[in-house]
Design a protein around this nucleic acid. Structure first.
Lengths: 337, 337
DNA sequence: CACTTGCGGTGAACCGGTTAACCTTTCTAG
DNA sequence: CTAGAAAGGTTAACCGGTTCACCGCAAGTG
């Protein structure tokens, strides 16, 4: 229908040159009040909005930031469908970005080389990595000199990118300490991979708590992944069958829910048969039955902080890593031994 | 660090003109095998990826689609954090889009005029509306002739945009019928606004089921919104206090969870004290305790369908509305009267 | 009164691609 | 042997903005 108006049309309508229109709209050079008014009027009437693809070309800034999510089965669906952690994060990021006039592009990318070409193609001004990615990626990104902020990653991998973390060690400690003070001594730590820095930190925290209580390090049980209900369910089934432990520390609330369900299906009860402690404190965690004892991390705050940090980095400022505090939230899924 | 390579550099390196490079890369004109090889080689070595902002400018296509979410409190957070329905949808959309070489831009827009300028600024090739928006928006969009596909909206509003729906009437019917055949006759329908076409359809379905069973139309109870745990909790609290009804039909699984929790907190049990039936069948619905009886809509399928439809519309094809089937999933949150 | 200065504005190059029009060579056919 | 077509490239205009260099004119200066 209507064609979008261009700057040329606005210029003609206002009887000035393209340059003047640009100066007026960007407030980037002195223009007399009267012409300014004429230009603005014309722009308004034509419903003019500058074409960012053209602007990006000259300014070399797209005002878009890429938000990169981990893939499960070649798709971000795995993560977004199962674990609302990411959703809470994304919404916070979207909000902060919009407030700073950035649009966000959402993607899960498969092959490392896709990252580079994505950034190049879209001229992304910055990148937000949600979670841990293969190490090579960061180096690759670094070599193209694109601002980035990392969430939930540790220094060993970051190539000096600023990161936003939580205090995972403390989280692990809080979880273990809570269980210990409820009389548990047969505690198991559910883990996908203790080499993952996040899990490693949490595990360190657990160990420290147990040590402080004069107990040996916790047992470790392998899980398929840290995000899904199903992997929790599977773990829960085994734990309930073996009956070797009285408490389990799970990597996420989502997984905790799976464990609890498995215990239930096996005929057991939470926390009577198995105390379960989650991680994250998702929205739903206070509503499920039993509600989840969990380590709360302020997800929204983390997302906001990361986005703000990215904005500053894109503006050329130096930024330091930041650590968000965690907190133990005691609810119904854990109990006295 | 490294500057991104431009087509000019590739051309020089390969000893040909910019045009030739473009022809080779887009396979849009005959070029001899030998030159083609040289060009590809040069492109590879320089890690060249065409700049989409430049491409968009000439082709007048950005290969980006905008995904628009409803706002709660000026942010999409409200919806993404509470109700995973949207997340499941978005992931499906992202996947399908990527497969078709489109990137997605995520946004919740506040004022109607923002939509227009957003589309213009970003040169969006198409729009996906998730949910119902103020009527004026669609007209506005229509006037700019941008392809769009609507999800969960009904004709009265759509200005002839193709839409992807579920059979809400049937959903309502299935829910009511299930309850009736379990002996319930004091059923309440939880609703935000019966003028909302989605809710209206579901309510129609309920009424039909009750009528077919020789019962009067169901009572209606007002809820704050259809998406949040909290609005369910509030409703549940009241319902349990009044004890006038034996079963409630909720607008979403999220809300259902809130209801169940409220009953629990009041000292009651689900389904013994109140049968609760949800809508959506989210991932978590089979894991919570009690697991939710619900009307399943294949969310992922809906998202995929909608994205595919949008791709076709953007390619100039005519498209018809589509309706996805729903299905009753019986679990633990409903029981015999 | 001639000479700078400042104001308000314009022209044109440029960003990085695409593509229509055109130009050489070489091949084919009459 | 020559006209015409096909093959393989190149040139240059264009997309819609931004911005640098420059320009005309009125006001200020010595």
């Amino acid at each position: 229908m209507e064609k979008r108006a261009t700057i040329k049309e606005v210029a003609e309508k206002a009887g000035v040159s393209k340059a003047t229109v640009s100066y007026v709209l960007n407030n980037t050079k002195k223009v007399s009040e009267s012409t300014k008014e004429r230009v603005l009027q014309a722009a308004r009437e034509l419903q003019y909005a500058p074409d960012f693809t053209a602007v990006s070309l000259t300014k070399k800034k797209s005002r878009m930031i890429g938000v990169i999510l981990p893939l499960i089965n070649e798709s971000i669906a795995g993560i977004m469908q199962e674990n609302t952690y990411y959703n809470e994060m994304i919404s916070a990021v979207e909000k902060t970005s919009r407030e700073n006039n950035y649009d966000i592009l959402l993607a899960g990318l498969a092959r490392p080389e896709d990252y580079r070409s994505w950034v190049q193609k879209r001229r992304l001004d910055g990148l937000l990595f949600l979670g841990l990615f293969p190490e090579g990626i960061y180096r690759e990104m670094h070599s193209m000199d694109v601002p980035a902020v990392l969430i939930d990653t540790y220094e060993s991998h970051t190539e000096n990118y600023p990161a936003v973390n939580i205090d995972d060690e403390k989280g692990g400690w809080l979880a273990a300490d809570h269980l210990i003070s409820n009389g548990h001594d047969k505690i198991v730590f559910l883990s996908v991979d203790l080499d993952n820095p996040v899990e490693k930190e949490r595990f360190q925290g657990c160990k420290r708590a147990l040590k402080e209580a004069g107990l040996p390090p916790p047992a470790v049980m392998k899980a398929e992944d840290i995000h899904s209900f199903e992997s929790g369910y599977e773990a829960g089934r085994q734990l309930f069958k073996e009956k070797k432990y009285t408490a389990v520390i799970s990597g996420s609330d989502t997984t905790a829910l799976g464990i609890i369900r498995a215990v239930h299906d096996g005929g057991g009860k939470t926390p009577e048969d198995l105390s379960v402690i989650g991680f994250d404190d998702l929205r739903l965690s206070r509503y499920v039955i039993p509600s989840l004892t969990t380590i709360r991390q302020h997800i929204e705050k983390k997302g906001t902080l990361a986005a703000e940090k990215l904005v500053r980095v894109m503006e050329g400022q130096e930024e330091q890593p930041e650590m968000v505090d965690v907190e133990l939230i005691v609810r119904e899924s854990t109990g006295k031994r």
